[in-house]
């Protein structure tokens, strides 16, 4: 088994019950998925919980996986659904700080970036984060958010221009 192959081929191996293939995918995506949640949530423990749930959901749904989309889109779609569910739950639970990704240990520069990101509207923020930190292509973002690629491009441009203004004014 080629554990250096593409994500999609490894996922097909997982579908067949391959443990090494799952380990390989975990090792590739443990950090990015954890980072995805960590930049969107204030509670590091909860972020790690959701990262764990993402991989468990990936494993649970492995039998249904079909190579119709990029694996990254598939994986981040799971993560995005879990995050949405978490936010809905948190919205019902007043006092939760799930959406507050602040920690006191952050340096000023980081704090400034995060404050600027928080001031973006939800659609621009999501596109910007997926591009800057998850390094998803425009096409992957479009597939994930279910919008046209042109929409992704325009949202991303507006988000970056807004960030430029917000970062300049600090």
């Amino acid at each position: 088994m080629d554990l250096t192959g593409s994500d999609e081929s490894l996922m097909l191996e997982v579908k067949q019950g391959s443990e090494p293939a799952f380990i390989a995918l975990f090792e590739r995506y443990a950090r990015p998925i954890h980072g995805y949640f960590r930049r969107r949530m204030g509670d590091p423990q909860r972020a790690e919980d959701l990262a764990q749930e993402t991989f468990l959901a990936l494993l649970k749904g492995a039998r249904r996986y079909e190579r119709r989309a990029l694996f990254r889109t598939y994986l981040y779609a799971i993560a995005m659904n879990l995050l949405s569910a978490e936010r809905r739950r948190a919205a019902k639970d007043r006092g939760s700080t799930t959406d507050e990704p602040a920690t006191s240990a952050d340096p000023d520069a980081v704090l400034w970036v995060r404050r600027a990101v928080e001031q973006l509207d939800d659609q621009q923020r999501e596109v910007l984060l997926l591009r800057e930190y998850e390094q998803l292509s425009y096409e992957e973002i479009a597939g994930l958010l279910n919008v046209p690629v042109n929409t992704v491009r325009s949202r991303l441009f507006r988000a970056r221009m807004a960030m430029k203004e917000l970062l300049v004014t600090r």
């Binding site: 443990a30 950090r31 954890h34 980072g35 960590r38 930049r39 590091p44 790690e48 990262a51 764990q52 340096p107 520069a109 980081v110 970036v113 995060r114 990101v117 910007l128 800057e132 930190y133 970056r160 960030m163 430029k164 970062l167």
Partner: peptide, 20 residues
């Protein structure tokens, strides 16, 4: 645009714990 991206790269997050 490059400057915005460079500033955003400063926002890093901690590693996931080994317990993950």
């Amino acid at each position: 645009l490059d400057d915005v991206s460079a500033q955003m790269r400063a926002w890093t997050v901690e590693e996931p714990s080994p317990q993950l």
